[in-house]
Every structure is written in structure tokens, then in C-alpha cells.
Write a protein that binds this DNA or RNA. Structure first.
Lengths: 170, 170
DNA sequence: GCTTAAATGATAATAGTTATCATTAAAGTT
DNA sequence: AACTTTAATGATAACTATTATCATTTAAGC
């Protein structure tokens, strides 16, 4: 039985994010995804994909590993990291990095969205704004770029924040 | 004499970013910045600030350390990391993290801007778009947030790219 | 079932960053 | 300008997230 890698245990629980209900995805859809990436379908990969589509939306590699550890006690975390990286590279998953914290992963929804994060309690709100999207395209085109992806992360404090420490910002 | 930490040497040079001319900032302005943060003015901190305002705009901690190593052979990289972190926390510097690459730092200009990055050659173009800014404020307000900061990073391929490997993206 | 190449899990290794701590230096006081 | 106090520094060790290695296992085409 493998030990957990020494990842900071406190951080994960500070995120007060709500559980998100996503539309259920069938195993056959997952299998197609995996084959589309040119990979073999393994029960580990299916389990990781299933895990990503339930519970909180933005999870660390460690959290995925822990979620799976109950049902798959023999799953190694290298497999989790490997597959999350592949999913990110192939565009099925969005990777969020904030400060030096462990990366958080999110299965891409059919509808694109960006994030609004509270710097005090860590709450993450998803939003979509088509006006912003098209302005981005406009900017890229003006500089001779073909857009492939973007990251828009808004940071602030939520009004009903249970933490309230609000550092001064320049 | 201290050895460098083992940072990957190749990455830095892959960035084809142009040198940026910024308006010169006097030492007395730097000193005020440092005192405003409640810190003592040291020649190390002055040197770091001077380094940030010349040469390429987006530098890693290692690059800052190396730039300074000629004139300050006794400067430790812990000092560079420490001060860059402080500058980031206090909002004088923007920290950019892309993938698992080392963080890049940039002295905040008077005029805010965002980034458009080529995923093939690493070129970084700065842009500002007031329409996007105000839409962001609108989104935050709609969710009961007080904005303190944001990150908008556009990724794509530049038309005159010398690398051209363009992965498929979902 | 057989074969082969890919995937896995355990582990070691790595890279970037941060903590530790003895020494040095800033800046106020006389 | 010497004295004091407290913060800053540099060298180093430690840490954390992530990736590479490699022997073993497993998927999937025949």
C-alpha cells in the first residue's frame, strides 16, 4: 500500500466551494474521449474521469487521488498526475494555478466559463460573458494571433465572506 | 561563493520576447516604495528593483539573480525570492504562472495591461483594453464581489512564428 | 489464449521555492 | 560618529508538487 506524497493537507479544505451538479456523462462517452487521445481505456482512467465529474468542480491531483483511494486502493498517484496532465494538454481539462498552491483541475464543460475567486475564503464562482470573449478575439486578431485558449481569473472579496482579512492591494 | 540552485537553464532562452523600454525610475522612488512596504532600504533591494526595470519585461527569479550576479556576486538567491514575493504580495509586481514553468515577474507599470502569449515561441505581447476591464467590474459587482485584482492571459499562435508546432486544442 | 506495446504503481529524482539560523547591516539614538 | 536594536542577508537545508524511471501488469488486436 502506497503512502500519500507529502502534499500540504490544510489547503484543500480551505476552499469553501459549493458542490456543482454537472450533467452526467456516460462511460461510453469517456471511452471515446480516451480513444480520441490515442490512449488505451483503463479502469484507472475511467475512474479519474468519473471522479472529475462529481463533487466539487476544482480539485487538486491529491484530492482526485484521495477520492479514488476508497474504491481503488491500488491506484498510484503517478497515474493521476500523468492522466491529468494529458487531459490538460489535450484540452479536456482546465488547469488553474494560483500563487504557489497546487494546481486545480476541472473537466471542461460544454459551455466555456471563467472564474471569480474570493482571496479571503477561496470561494470560486463560475461565470460566462460573451462580450468579454469576443473582445478577446478582437484583441488577438489585432496583434496577428490565432487564439487557442485563454485564462481569465478575477480576484476579489465576496460580500458575505466568512473570513475577511482583505490585504491592501496596489 | 554560492552555487546557483538547479533551475532548468534552457527554458529562459526560449522566450523570444523583445526588450521593453520603460520609463526610468529614480532610486528615490524605489526607496519610497520599499519604505511604503514597511521594509528597510538595502542595496540588494534597490538592485533588484533596478534590474526589474531594465531588459526584458517578464523575468524569472533565476534571471534576476543572474543579472545581478555580475555586480553583486555576494547576493543570495533567497533574497531575490523573498523580495519578489513581497513585491507581489504588496501589488508592485505581477506574477505570471504558465504550466509548471517557473514564475515570471514584472514590475507593474502605471498603466495596467494584460498579456497575449504565443504557445509556440513564447513571445509575450502586452495589451490594454478598457472595455474588457469595465466588463470585469460589472461581472464582479453582479456576484457581490469587490475586485482587487485579475489575470487575463490570452494564448494563441502568432502569425510570424519561428517555431510552429501548434498542438490541437479542444 | 497469445502477443506486443502501452499503462501502471512504487520509488527515486527533480525543480522551484521557502524555512532556518548564524552573521551582517540599516537606521534611530545619543 | 560610536552604540543599540532589530530587521535583512546568504548559505544551506528542507520542503512540496510534480515528473522520470523501471520492473510488472494489462489492454486490445489477432
Amino acid at each position: 500500500m502506497s503512502d500519500f506524497p507529502k502534499l500540504s493537507p490544510g489547503i484543500a479544505n480551505e476552499y469553501k466551494e459549493e458542490l456543482v451538479t454537472r450533467e452526467p456523462i456516460s462511460d461510453s462517452q469517456y471511452k471515446r474521449m480516451i480513444r480520441d487521445m490515442g490512449l488505451k481505456v483503463t479502469h484507472q482512467r475511467l475512474a479519474i474521469l468519473r471522479s472529475l465529474s462529481k463533487g466539487r468542480a476544482h480539485v487538486t491531483a491529491q484530492e482526485v487521488f484521495e477520492n479514488l483511494h476508497q474504491d481503488h486502493p491500488d491506484m498510484g498517484f503517478a497515474t493521476v498526475y500523468r492522466f491529468l496532465r494529458k487531459l490538460t494538454e489535450e484540452g479536456f481539462v482546465t488547469e488553474i494555478r494560483m500563487g504557489g498552491l497546487p494546481a486545480r483541475y476541472e473537466l471542461k464543460a460544454k459551455t466555456h466559463h471563467d472564474h471569480l475567486t474570493c482571496i479571503d475564503c477561496g470561494k470560486i464562482i463560475e461565470f460566462e460573458n460573451q462580450e468579454i470573449e469576443s473582445l478577446q478575439e478582437k484583441v488577438a486578431k489585432a496583434h496577428g494571433f490565432q487564439l487557442t485558449d485563454h485564462v481569465l481569473e478575477l480576484y476579489g472579496t465576496c460580500h458575505d465572506c466568512p473570513y475577511k482579512r482583505s490585504l491592501a492591494k496596489g
